[in-house]
Design a binder for these strands. Structure first.
Lengths: 204, 204
DNA sequence: AGCTTTCGCTACGACTCGTAGCGTAATGCC
DNA sequence: GGCATTACGCTACGAGTCGTAGCGAAAGCT
């Protein structure tokens, strides 16, 4: 949200129900209208609140959509499927499912586009989406190490984690949204094989 | 362009100079204003033409920006650096340079975002960008085969070409625009190693 | 020449923008 | 309970953009 209710603040507090209604209305409007035709006035009407209530909490369309998008990405989890390979395939398919949702794909690309010339929005995107989802890579690595599938870290794992994250997320996004081809079980299997074999051979 | 001059058509032909001026003005406006603040009226003013002239050739902002974007992507070539590994690193760095240009990054993401809910625009994107750039992968493979670095095709190479294209383009785009980290020589080297070793081990 | 099409220009109604002002509702503090 | 404070819904506003229409003039094909 744009502003948490300051602790010990006098006066009527912001309605949490209004926050939720606005975010839900934003996701709904993204599906029906897409980014460019989405208006904050329309979102307010759908949410059953006044337009001014939306503007009191978010400074603009970009910020609102970013927060609505974050609620969608937080659906992602890393189910334990028993092996590194199966875990990666699982997260690839799960991410692809998320990108199949019209609200997700429209919002993600539009926010990234706006962020290219808006430093504050870039920061928001990093905090609420990138940093939160990178946890999946960290967790997957940790699990694979505890299973003995990959060696424990000897050097700083940061760069490798970044590389893996960009390759997985980038490839899935690109195939789904730019090439407009489906990410099915076969593609996920072939992609995972290339990634894991490449990491094993190249040594990170 | 939106409409080629029909052959053997009577009357005054469309000005090719106006086409070029409009596309150049669009690239310029994308840099300064980004997608959401770019208006066709402003583009017309910058190009030194009337607003109606723009609307006669392109049906909307998305189509115009897509064509302006295609002129930027057509800068990409595949220099022969002597080995598959060097060729891939070269194209990765070249693509990263292209995405450093403000006009490219803003336009690419915005067009993809609009394309998620516009089938005609998706088609235009595939024709003018995706299909044209996939040639780089095809050419790189052909060269590597003629050098004997990889075996000649036994099965249909189509799926592998698609996979390679999405992994390369996706990873570079994601690192540059979503993670907002630079694609330098070190990253390109590590990425290329993972990709090529993975393809060699996984066998496509 | 004569015909056809494009060009620049102006104007138009419709829409969205983000903000301001009002009276009312809901809460914390005393 | 009463009061100060803040959020809320509503209405209205000027500014800006949208995409289109109509006009006379310019430019090129046959």
């Amino acid at each position: 949200m744009q502003s948490h209710t300051p602790a010990g603040r006098a006066g009527r507090p912001r309605s949490a129900a209004a926050d939720a209604a606005i975010l839900a209305a934003t996701r709904e409007a993204l599906v029906e209208l897409g980014w460019s035709k989405l208006t904050l006035g329309d979102v307010a009407t759908r949410a059953g609140v006044a337009k001014t209530t939306v503007y009191r909490r978010w400074t603009g369309k970009s910020e609102l959509v970013t927060d609505a998008l974050a609620t969608l990405f937080d659906q992602l989890v890393l189910p334990d499927r028993g092996s590194l390979r199966a875990d990666v395939e699982g997260v690839v398919l799960q991410f692809a499912d998320l990108l199949e949702q019209p609200a997700t794909k429209t919002a993600l690309m539009a926010v990234v586009a706006e962020a290219t010339h808006d430093e504050a929005l870039r920061q928001r995107l990093r905090e609420k989406i990138v940093a939160r989802q990178k946890r999946l890579v960290v967790e997957g690595r940790r699990r694979a190490q505890s299973r003995g599938e990959i060696p424990a870290d000897v050097t700083d794992p940061g760069p490798q984690i970044d590389l893996i994250f960009d390759v997985i997320a980038g490839a899935v996004v690109h195939r789904t949204l730019v090439s407009c081809e489906p990410v099915d079980a076969d593609w996920a299997s072939r992609f995972t094989a290339v990634l894991l074999d490449g990491l094993a051979a190249a040594g990170g």
